[in-house]
Design a binder for these strands. Structure first.
Lengths: 157, 157
DNA sequence: ACTAAATGGTCAAGGACGATTTACTAAACG
DNA sequence: CGTTTAGTAAATCGTCCTTGACCATTTAGT
């Protein structure tokens, strides 16, 4: 039977939970990022799935299957995302010289410029965070997040 | 024209970006949480939208309209989530004695027990993080995230 | 070399989720 | 009263992803 004491405990946990703060912070970060990107120009409309694809495009291009593998989705799903970004002229498919079946997905000139713009928006937001956190705590946050991502990336026990 | 130097810069930024680490960490956290919750019993299947609703249910019940407002969605959308959770016997709708039109959404006994279970899963994951981070860095992470959430919660400049 | 299996990719259909719009009932408020 | 507020109902939508079928090419087995 739930008591008032139980509820106070729940409240304390909710406020104290690193996990919940992490999730909330990430959501806010993503919203702010997409809002600024899509505000500063009617060029294209990036969606969440696109932004999770883009970081996996390598300098010399990446195969669709490899992208799908890295994202943990089917190659059809990855193909759809690539097609979207292709129609925005951010990505292009070129034949892979080492395999006649394969194509390499890579940035267009414009896509690369857009990525640079995007990263500068990200840096801007991060510098706003650093302004309130301070340099030291920002560095600590960065280090801690590296460890967190590393730990959570390993398979479940 | 993109150069190799540009690419190296991009790579450095990607690895260094607090924003991207935050988003990735949150995604991994949520995945691990839902996986464990849904693994330790075939009782119910919680989805992401449900877990974002639950923390807003107050001790004495919360009105649907208020839930919708807090979540930033329409009351119909909130109503649907509540209906889902109701059919899992985690929530119930009761008449609000202070307003004949209104109903209060509140936890059932079972729902509250499940919440406790859920929070203990969360604490478990967090303790695993603390095991690799160390107590001090875990505390620093917590404090930094509080500031980050606070800063990102304020309206856009 | 020749065929069989594996691999890279595309097309089409559609499902799950998380919402929205529009329309409605019932109660409260003033 | 008439207007506002709480909630429900039904249809639909956008996003993101899957399944299934298929073609072209490479790789392996014998």
């Amino acid at each position: 039977m739930p008591t008032v004491r139980d509820w106070e405990a729940l409240d304390r946990i909710k406020r104290a939970s690193v996990g919940q703060l992490l999730i909330k912070g990430a959501r806010l970060m993503q919203e702010r990022f997409l809002a600024r990107i899509n505000r500063q120009g009617p060029k294209v409309t990036l969606r969440r799935a696109h932004t999770s694809l883009l970081p996996h495009i390598d300098q010399h291009g990446t195969r669709l299957t490899e992208l799908a593998r890295r994202l943990g989705i089917t190659k059809q799903a990855a193909g759809q995302l690539v097609s979207d970004l292709e129609s925005m002229a951010l990505l292009e498919r070129v034949d892979d010289p080492r395999d006649g079946r394969a194509k390499l997905v890579r940035f267009t000139k414009r896509g690369l410029e857009s990525i640079h713009d995007g990263l500068s928006v990200l840096r801007q937001i991060e510098s706003e965070l650093e302004a309130v956190l301070g340099k030291t705590k920002m560095r600590q946050l960065h280090e801690a997040l590296l460890v967190v991502v590393d730990e959570l990336s390993r398979p479940e026990p």
